[in-house]
């Protein structure tokens, strides 16, 4: 590229179409240098990586949104909504990129609203039902620490658009990880009840983290699964130490992987709710 700036054709179609997400009339014009796939990059792998990372973000955002009106404090509710919004933004960019390079020309809405749950490729940890606050803080810590480690490496990806999305996401994910880690420390080092629940959350969440540790969807773009997994382990140990918690012994991972489309029974209802308006009113605009 002769220009270091990466432009994405999000909502460029005209000055009067200044709405976003479902119903925006967003059309991907597939124009400009940014849409080309660089030589040596396998388009199918790039699309799969972008869509899977987009799915992780979208499903997490949807679970976080379930805390609205239900978080322990208003401040935490705002925080969780903002974290979800960051992830939703990452999903939009990743889906747009996936649709640009997979040959279908699908837009972000096609990925978010018009695929069935069986077509989602998110890791299963993100789709597990919302637990208590301790569960969701431990889950957020695991997800954000792992995703941050991936994005730090993807910022050097051979695809300039994925690299730009990742570089932007790094700054956001660092805040998400900080927020979750501080809560895990506060709960783990808190009352007897909060400590008990945080220990239970670790025991519930960590078996699902094995799937993250083995994930290689980002490996072709410089994000080695093993390195990201080690970064995640380091963060977990550091946080557990600060909280005075002992990490549970390594657990058996549940069979299957979300990346190969094997999901828990919890994904389909989540996706159904997420897509209900878009599917009931296809083509609606506001």
């Amino acid at each position: 590229m002769n220009d270091e700036r990466i432009s994405l054709a999000l909502g460029e179609e005209g000055p009067d179409d200044a709405r976003w997400a479902f119903g925006t009339g967003f059309e991907d014009p597939l124009h400009g240098i940014a849409t080309a796939v660089p030589e040596g990059v396998e388009a199918a792998r790039l699309a799969a990586c972008c869509a899977a990372l987009g799915d992780d973000a979208l499903v997490t955002a949807q679970r976080l949104a379930e805390w609205c009106t239900d978080a322990p404090e208003l401040e935490e509710e705002l925080a969780l909504a903002n974290i979800g919004l960051d992830l939703l933004g990452q999903a939009r960019l990743l889906y747009s990129r996936a649709g640009q390079v997979d040959g279908t020309g699908r837009d972000e809405d096609a990925f978010a609203y018009f695929r069935d749950a069986a077509d989602f490729r998110n890791v299963r940890l993100v789709e597990l039902p919302r637990g208590d606050f301790a569960f969701d803080m431990v889950r957020l810590l695991v997800l954000s620490a792992w995703r941050l480690a991936l994005f730090e490496r993807l910022a050097g990806a051979a695809d300039p658009v994925l690299a730009a999305i990742a570089a932007k996401g790094v700054k956001e994910l660092a805040y998400h990880r900080q927020f979750a880690a501080e809560w895990v420390v506060r709960l783990g080092d808190g009352t007897e009840e909060s400590r008990k629940r945080t220990a239970r959350a670790l025991a519930e969440v960590l078996p699902w983290a094995v799937e993250l540790a083995r994930d290689e969807i980002s490996a072709p773009f410089g994000a080695d699964g093993g390195e990201a997994s080690k970064a995640l382990s380091d963060v977990l140990r550091q946080t557990a130490d600060a909280a005075g918690l002992t990490l549970p012994p390594p657990a058996e991972a549940p069979a299957g992987t979300g990346r190969s489309g094997e999901h828990t029974e919890h994904l389909a209802p989540l996706v159904g709710e997420l897509q209900s308006v878009a599917r009931e009113h296809p083509g609606a605009r506001w």
Partner: peptide, 9 residues
């Protein structure tokens, strides 16, 4: 034409 730019962040 308003272009959205991501890089540098």
């Amino acid at each position: 034409r308003v272009k959205t730019e991501l890089q540098p962040p």
